[in-house]
């Protein structure tokens, strides 16, 4: 599968070209256009791959309940994919044995050679207003991610093998949870308050942050979806009954 990213960075569109036998699983609603030769199957929780795993993924991670799989059978074909909000997309090559931890709403698509699961983040996340669960991707192939805003590829400890990251000169990073797109699992991370006390954290407006340590790649988005939603949401008129 070959993925090209078009119209970067604010309104990025991904074009995935599939060879016969290849399939790509995408968030429901992400499809913009597709070759007629591709076969589309919609996987609900009843489809193969384990009922509970899919149910868990849909209910717990904030990901959509149904996902679509596009498969090239006899002829090559392409599918165009886009996220709902303005912003960039990026492609992460999953290395053998590595797991990518993804914030649910930042996942767009991955080939069927990649296994997507959920991972519990601990109860502190419940209070942080973020999803309690992250998605994880493991296997062989490329994962397509979206960012609200532009995406920064940040390397901790050492340059990541794809050579596309910005290397930090420290092996630790404090990151607002709302700006996290994904990180490689070799990194240690914990959810914590930005300041010593809860009250100080509350007023600082930074609330909960991720403290990330070790070696690996972190993808950071330049805008915060929740902050945007709060600003627009609080300005909306009351709902009509």
């Amino acid at each position: 599968m070959q993925i090209d990213l078009l119209y970067k960075p604010s309104h990025t569109l991904a074009r995935a070209v599939l060879q016969p036998g290849e399939g790509v699983r995408a968030e429901s609603g992400a499809m913009v256009g597709m070759s007629p030769s591709l076969a589309l199957s919609t996987d609900g929780p009843m489809a193969g791959g384990g009922f509970f795993k899919k149910l868990k993924r849909a209910v717990l991670s904030g990901e959509t309940f149904f996902t679509n799989t596009f498969t090239a059978t006899r002829a090559p074909g392409e599918v165009l994919l886009a996220p709902p909000l303005c912003g960039d997309m990026c492609v992460h090559d999953v290395r053998p044995g590595e797991r990518l931890v993804i914030q649910g709403s930042n996942y767009v698509a991955s080939p069927d050679t990649i296994d997507v699961d959920t991972q519990f983040q601990g109860f502190r996340r419940f209070f942080s207003g973020q999803s309690l669960f992250f998605l994880t991707a493991a296997g062989r192939g490329q994962v397509l991610l979206n960012g609200f805003g532009a995406i920064e590829a940040l390397d901790l400890g050492e340059p990541y093998p794809d050579g596309r990251g910005r290397l930090l000169d420290t092996d630790e990073l404090v990151l607002d949870t709302g700006h996290l797109v994904a990180l490689t699992e070799g990194l240690d991370y914990e959810v914590t308050t930005v300041k010593a006390g809860l009250i100080a954290s509350y007023f600082s407006g930074e609330g909960f942050v991720l403290r990330v340590r070790g070696r690996g790649r972190v993808y950071v988005q330049t805008r915060n979806r929740e902050a945007f939603g709060r600003d627009v949401g609080s300005a909306l008129p009351a709902k009509q009954q």
Binding site: P9, S10, C86, G87, D88, G149, A150, L154, L168, T170, E172, L173, V174, L175, D176, H179, V194, F203, S204, G205, E206, V220, T222, R223, N224, A227
Partner: peptide, 28 residues
């Protein structure tokens, strides 16, 4: 369209920012 500002702080430097604007910072 998606701009942010990256601020390198030397000892003694200070920058004040709107609450909630922080994306990431180094441990120190």
């Amino acid at each position: 369209a998606q701009s942010w500002m990256r601020v390198g702080l030397k000892p003694g430097d200070a920058i004040q920012a709107e609450a909630g604007a922080m994306v990431r910072h180094s441990p120190g």
